[in-house]
Amino acid sequence: MGDEAKAIDRDKAKRFLGQITNDLGAAMLGALTYIGDRLGIFKALPPGQWLTSEELARRTGFSERCLREWLGAMAAAGYVEYEPANRAYMMPPEHALVLANEDSPLFMGGFIQMVVPNVTMAPRVADAFRTGTGVPQSDYPPETFHAMERSSAGMYRHRLVRKWLPAMPQVVEALNAGATVADVGCGSGRAAIALASAFPHTRVYGYDVHPVSIERARVNAEEAGVADRVTFEVRDGIRLPEARFDFVSTFDVVHDAADPVALLRAIRRSLKPEGTYLMVEMNVSPNVEENLNAKGRMMYSISTLYCMTVSLAEGGAGIGAMMGEPKAREFATEAGFRNFRRLPIDELFSALYEIRP
């Protein structure tokens, strides 16, 4: 024991203590960013303008004392700037793009909203560590799925039609001519609605096993004015109609699936001979040593709290969000696809695979 004590690098221990302190602060700050997003406080801070906690209280109608403490945390984290002489705070315009502007391609409000519902499931996930049985998707609070909708909305709004589809000219040609399309694991339907909105001659079908999400998707389609050409149905992705679709998409779905190969086999069977399947998955490596960064920390955590465990709950493989390109290729080959191409599109969070029979 004495030799072990002498071998301890106390400076290293102190540095790690600092890291833990930082991480604990970030965890607690996650709850406060959730409050700022849920109550609209971020949106109430005018970008580039200084205001005091009293002024913010008058603007929002919220408690000045609560706002003052919240603002202190945001200033300490660098989310807002602080001017001591006037006890004033300012949201930099660049930060507003991330925290307050829902139309911004940089907006992270959906991920912020995801913090609390996922963390509240931690005791259930802890039990799953003991049993290995996972936590069913149906047990997660409804806010989880609203957060997912918001976190992916920018992807469909800014990238799907404008940037991603043009990398597959044959798909754009088919969509313009009037294709039959399926989005499998469609959630609240945002991708399907984006396709129907951009290509009015195309018929789109959205499938998901989560009834609440399908109900939400139908409402979204009505509000978007495309309910006449988008159909949403509660259906397992391994039970798709055969030889029906010109284009099939999945967005961050395969790694959650109980049986990814069965899902891809069903998608292959559902495609017409000249059809195309677009698989979008997380832009990560399957190797831990290549994920030792901020994105890796975030994605391993989300995967543990949701992606992996919902698959295990269905008796699945529990692949998790860190699936990576090699596993995507493996699944596609095993499912009978002959052509697999990673699209030459650089995205922070997304990797795109064009897969054809």
Results as ranks from 00 to 15, higher is better:
Val230Cys: 11
Met1Lys: 13
Ser53Val: 07
Tyr300Phe: 12
Ser104Met: 01
Phe349Glu: 03
Glu347Leu: 09
Gln113Phe: 09
Pro46Ile: 03
Ser138Lys: 13
Ile8Arg: 11
Ala335Asn: 01
Val181Trp: 15
Gly318Asp: 00
Gly316Val: 01
Asp23Thr: 06
Gly318Ser: 01
Asp103Thr: 08
Gly25Ser: 13
Leu240Ile: 03
Pro344Gly: 00
Ala182Phe: 10
Val116Thr: 11
Trp70Ala: 09
Ile41Gln: 08
Pro105Gly: 10
Met323Leu: 06
Asp37Lys: 13
Gly318Gln: 01
Glu242Asn: 04
His255Met: 09
Ser350Val: 06
Thr309Tyr: 04
Ala174Tyr: 07
Gly109Gln: 01
Leu160Val: 13
Thr60Gln: 03
Arg356Met: 03
Glu215Asn: 12
Val135Arg: 07
Ala27Phe: 13
Gly132Asn: 02
Trp50Ile: 03
Leu71Ser: 02
Thr133Gln: 10
Glu281Phe: 07
Leu97Phe: 10
Met121Gly: 06
Pro117Gln: 06
Phe129Asn: 08
Ala147Gln: 08
Arg159Phe: 15
Arg87Glu: 15
Asp259Gly: 07
Thr276His: 10
Ala13Cys: 14
Ile302Gly: 02
Asn339Leu: 09
Ser53Phe: 06
Ala321Phe: 03
Asp37Val: 12
Leu99Phe: 11
Glu143Gln: 15
Glu94Asp: 05
Asn220Ser: 10
Glu325Ala: 14
Asp139Lys: 11
Gly324Thr: 00
Ala221Pro: 02
Tyr300Trp: 09
Met308Glu: 15
Tyr34Pro: 03
Lys163Thr: 14
Pro123Tyr: 03
Glu94Met: 03
His255Ile: 07
Ser104Phe: 00
Gln19His: 14
